[in-house]
Computed example of a mutant assay.
Amino acid sequence: MMSFDEAFSAVLHHKIELGIEEVDLLQSTGRVLAEDILADRDFPPFDRATKDGIAINFSVIEKGLKKLRIEAVVSAGMPQQKLGDIKNCVEIMTGAVVPQNADTVIMYEHLDIKDGYSNISRDVKKGQDIHKKGSDVKTGTVLLKKHTKIGPSQIGVLASVGKSKILVRQLPKVCVISTGNELVDVSQIPLPHQIRKSNILSLFTALEKEGIEADRIHLQDDKESIKKELSHILEEFDVVMLSGGVSKGKFDFIPEVMESLDVRKVFHRVAQRPGKPFWFGTQTKLNTVVFSFPGNPVSTFANYHIYFLPWLNVSLGQEDKKYQVVLDDTIEIKPPLTRFIQVKTYLDEGNFHVRIIRENGSGDLTSLANSNGFICLRPRENAYEKGELVPFIASKTII
């Protein structure tokens, strides 16, 4: 049986190279950039007024002039105008191009405008209230680096440089498989010996959050039919994700079938709770990765977040993010199992703390609804003390 740290490293070691595709800007949210995004011009692209008021040539202030004739009105969206007489001024709106011969803007609150003239009532500093051309970014500057995940703020940057089409990393093709004769569809009323399918739907919707539209298949506990179906699935998908069929029962056929299909077992069984029977392997010729999770709901849910999401991130060229939270209880974790304990986070004086969610084993679905992640506690002789920082794996928003 492999330790958790060994199993985790082994999973990340078997990342796969995903291709690149071009998508529309508004279809790129949540995707990972496959190109650096450069500024196609200076930002701002012109000297821009940041206040509503008047634009002047500062020489009038140096000469002690306070009353200036208004030549024109300039609004945002107009081509650059010209201050014809530097002893005059133009009215200017926020966002407008500062006219030629003008170098300073004075906001309306510091003016008294009457009969076509503007009287300056406050002290003026040369160059004030102008956002200078190129002061934010120069042409050719890298605005977004390759491997950046695209969110709403990145969409704004992409739009500002005219990127209507974006090169992004392809997402893996995933097939989610449930196994077991005891499972029936959600719409059915189960008999006393049956249960409704839930794991496959949890995995399916979790993958949807990552932008992955997975295929869903159910396999009965029949070795030959499992082998036949899996032989086709392994050829068509980058990732095969199973729930159930990997324990030591007489009808847990997945490990045996995988071996017969030349899927190399990387490991089977990890020294952790929940999720100890986890089976992981690869079909090298087909470049397919197999995550075969235990059938218990909490085990499946935990292993998806513990192993698959970090694997997905590194396969997309992103770093596996690490989080820590403050423990609110003293807990003993004796060897040999690493424990993943369901918790609910809360913010206290700027730090994230966790309350432990009590559960009734790895089949307790309701505990998943009440938690938003797992703390990872490796086995050690000394207890984990209240107030100690411990690793945290988020499964939902952490506040």
Score class of each variant (00 low, 15 high):
S243I: 05
S135V: 07
A159D: 00
C175V: 12
G84M: 14
Y108I: 10
W311D: 07
I20Y: 10
R169A: 00
L365V: 09
D221Q: 08
V390H: 08
K63A: 11
T104S: 03
I212E: 07
G19P: 01
Q220G: 14
D215R: 09
M1H: 15
R378E: 15
M241L: 10
K334V: 09
D85P: 01
K285V: 02
H110F: 03
D364R: 05
I150F: 02
V326E: 00
V263P: 05
R273E: 13
G134P: 07
L234V: 06
A7C: 10
G211N: 09
S202A: 07
N372F: 06
M78D: 15
I130Q: 02
P391M: 03
Q100P: 03
Y117L: 09
R273W: 10
V186R: 06
A394C: 08
L312Q: 13
N351M: 11
V11G: 02
G350E: 03
I54E: 06
R269Q: 15
S121C: 10
L38V: 05
Y346P: 04
G387K: 14
F204R: 07
L201T: 13
Q194C: 11
L143C: 02
E91V: 10
K276P: 05
T205L: 12
G180M: 13
I357P: 05
L377G: 10
S371C: 10
I233N: 01
K248N: 11
Y346R: 08
Y117G: 01
P274D: 07
G151P: 00
D348C: 04
V298A: 11
G387P: 10
I195P: 01
R41W: 06
V137M: 02
I16Y: 06
R69N: 15
P277L: 06
D221E: 00
E62N: 15
F251S: 14
P294T: 09
V270G: 13
N360K: 14
A102R: 09
P190I: 11
I86G: 02
P274F: 06
V314E: 03
D24L: 02
L377M: 15
L33E: 08
R196M: 11
V263R: 08
G281R: 05
I155C: 00
L191C: 11
S292I: 00
K67A: 01
K334A: 10
R216S: 08
R48H: 07
L201I: 06
A72I: 02
V73M: 03
S187C: 13
D47K: 06
I195V: 14
R264E: 13
M241E: 03
P294N: 03
L83S: 04
D24I: 00
G162M: 00
